[in-house]
């Protein structure tokens, strides 16, 4: 029987398609999370009121921020899930090596981020529409969607944040796979770090770190920062997992 010489690109393409079909459950959970977030958001996400004996004014803010937040968390958790044994080792049933497995996972996470971003932004619009028609609120100021270009930038930024957290989740998940003890150790270190950051008021490392991304006002710069960071995290994951055995 003659040997076949597969090309890396074609194997990655096949694996990517395979993952879109077989990880469909992740999109189901995304949908459920977003529905939940929409329900929560129908109550105001923020508001202010004042009144005297004649007039009462209530200003409420409605936005898709909760949906976006939930979607980012979804991206983070999904990324961790696909690094777990059950998912990682499914690949080895069919043709794969560690590189193709990682790259197809990344392509899957990029797709997940795009789909998550689009649905989250649409959910934000949906919330406002529902408020307007069903709850009969008067819109005084219609948030950040003043023009189409800004809407697309908002979409782009959302996708970038989901992708950033996905790549972080993927990296953490991969590190945890290195050794059993890390399953406990890594969360302890992260939570410990967060607590330390909270209690030591003069240390703002975490805030500074998040500010790099979340305070960025230029969309293009944000794009560059996220792509570079995600690229670094993914490459790190590839290097770490490249010598990992299939444990099953």
């Amino acid at each position: 029987m003659s040997l076949t010489t597969p090309s890396m690109a074609s194997v990655i393409r096949k694996q990517y398609k395979y993952k879109l079909r077989s990880y469909i459950g992740m999109f189901n959970s995304l949908m459920m999370l977003q529905v939940l977030a929409i329900l929560i958001s129908l109550g105001a996400t923020g508001g202010r009121g004042s009144s005297n004996s004649w007039i009462s004014i209530n200003v409420d803010y409605y936005s898709g921020d909760t949906v976006i937040g939930f979607t980012i968390i979804w991206g983070f958790i999904s990324a961790i899930i696909i690094t777990t044994k059950a998912y990682r080792e499914d690949d080895f049933v069919l043709i794969t090596n560690r590189l193709s497995s990682n790259v197809s996972n990344m392509l899957f996470l990029v797709s997940g981020s795009v789909i998550g971003g689009i649905t989250a932004i649409l959910a934000g619009c949906f919330i406002r529409v529902i408020r307007y028609f069903v709850f009969d609120s008067t819109v005084i100021y219609y948030g950040n969607v003043s023009n189409v270009q800004e809407m697309f930038m908002g979409l782009g930024a959302t996708i970038m944040f989901i992708l950033l957290l996905s790549s972080l989740g993927y990296f953490i998940g991969t590190v945890v796979q290195l050794h059993k003890s890390l399953v406990v150790l890594v969360p302890v270190i992260i939570i410990g770090f967060l607590i330390a950051q909270g209690s030591l008021s003069n240390d703002y490392l975490l805030l500074d770190l998040t500010a790099i991304y979340f305070q960025e006002t230029s969309f293009l710069l944000l794009l560059c920062k996220v792509i570079v960071s995600a690229g670094l995290l993914f490459s790190g994951s590839i290097i770490i997992s490249n010598r990992m055995e299939v444990k099953r």
């Binding site: 076949t4 010489t5 059950a86 049933v93 043709i95 090596n97």
Partner: peptide
């Protein structure tokens, strides 16, 4: 990758 493409390993731990 080329060994993987030309080899199939079947055992009772396989998952789909």
């Amino acid at each position: 990758l080329s060994v993987s493409a030309n080899t199939i390993f079947i055992d009772d731990q396989m998952n789909f």
